[in-house]
Design a protein around this nucleic acid. Sequence first.
RNA 1: CGACACCUUAUUCU
DNA 2: AGAATAAGGTGTCG
Lengths: 227, 227
Amino acid sequence: MRERVVAACDGASKGNPGPAGWAWVVSDDDERTPARWEAGPLGRATNNVAELTALERLLTAVDPDVPLEIRMDSQYAMKAVTTWLPGWKRNGWKTAAGKPVANQDLVVRIDELLDGRSVEFRYVPAHQVDGDPLNDFADRAASQAASVQEPAGSALGSAQPPPSPDTPKTAGAPRRKAPRTGGTASSRTISAKFPGRCLCGRSYAAGEKIAKNAQGWGHPECRTAEA
Amino acid sequence: MRERVVAACDGASKGNPGPAGWAWVVSDDDERTPARWEAGPLGRATNNVAELTALERLLTAVDPDVPLEIRMDSQYAMKAVTTWLPGWKRNGWKTAAGKPVANQDLVVRIDELLDGRSVEFRYVPAHQVDGDPLNDFADRAASQAASVQEPAGSALGSAQPPPSPDTPKTAGAPRRKAPRTGGTASSRTISAKFPGRCLCGRSYAAGEKIAKNAQGWGHPECRTAEA
RNA sequence: CGACACCUUAUUCU
DNA sequence: AGAATAAGGTGTCG
C-alpha cells in the first residue's frame, strides 16, 4: 500500500475580517520539505473562512486515493469537520447556543470531499520557535496571498513566500538549509512511458512530462533537489 | 490662573529586558527648550517598566498644583493610565486575554499621583526626523541612564545627554541651534526676598537661592539662557 | 467560562 | 534582517 502523504494548510485575514488568503502545501517524503504548494486570494473574508477554504482547496488538489496526514493550527476548522460535524448533521445545523452554524456551505463541501478518503488530521500549534515547517510554510504563503491578493504556487513557478514578521525564528542552533523547491524547473523532463504516482500524491498519465527527483519520478514542479 | 507647563518623559532598556533607565524633562516657556530634567537607573527591567517609571518620577517631581502637558511616545504607558485603567479597576485587573495586568503596582501609583491634578497627555511619535525636541531630550537622557546606570539631571549639574546613534538627523535644512541649557550654572544667584513660582512649575521659598532667566526668577538649575 | 486562530497598535531593542 | 514588552479587537466553537 502506498505511503501516506503529509500536508498542511492555513488561512490568513488581514484585519479579520479583511483581505484574506489561503494556502496548502504537500511535503516531500521527509515530511518537512515543501514539494508542491498553492496559495490564493479570497477578497474580504474572516480568518475562519480562510482556514476552511485552505482545507477545501487542499482536498480538491490532492488525489482522493492517496492517504493524507493534514496538519493545521486551526482547532476551529479541524473540529468543525471532525468533532462537531456529526452533531450538526443530526440537529439541523444548530450551534450549542441555538444559533445557525457559520460557514455551513464550506463545512458541507469539505465533508463531501472527505467521503471515502483516508485522512488523518493533526493539530500543530502556530508560530512556535521550532514548530512544524510545513505549517510555517503554509502560514507564510497564506499571509502573502492575503496581502497581495494574487495566486501563487509551485505550479506557477512562484518564489518561496517571504518570512512572516510574527513567526519566531529558531534559536542559535545551526540547521541544514532545506533544499530549494517550487521555483523554476532546471533538470531534464521526459514523457512517461507508463502511468504512475508522483510523491505529491497525484498520479500522472502515460505521455505526461515527468522529471526525476530524489525518490523517483513525478511532476516536474514537484522536484525537490537535483538528482 | 497659572500657565500650563509642558513636559516629556521616556524610558529605555538595553536588551529588553536589560539595564534600564528613565528620564523626564520640563520645558522652558517656549515648549521646546529643556529647563529642568532628571534621569536615573533602574537595574534590569523591561522597556515598559522604564516608561511607566519615567512618568511616575515626573509626576512626583512636579508640583501637583501646576497644570501639565505630558508628551510621551509610549502608547502603552499613556493608554494604561488613561484608557485602560478604568476598565482594569472594574474587572479586577484582567487583560483582554484573561491574564493579570502587568506592572499593576506602577499603574496604581501613577493613578494616585494623577488624582485631583490637571494633566493632559499627548502622544508624540518616537525618533522622528523633525520630532518633538523634549521627547528627543528625554529619550537620550533615559538611554544614557540605562547605559551608565548613574543618576543625572539639571539639579546635579549634569551635562546634556549625548545624541542617540539611532535618532535620524535633520535633512539639509539649516536650523537654529537650541539655546544651551541644564549644564553648569554661570550667572549670578540671589536669595529670594519673597516666595514665588519658578517656570518649572515648582515654587521657591523666601531665602532660597534663585536666578534670573529669560522669563523671570526661578531655580538656578532652571535657567535656559543668559539674560 | 474555556480553547484555537486571525490580527491591530506602540515602544524597547539586537 | 531579527526578538521582547505590552495592550486592544474579531472570528468561531463547546
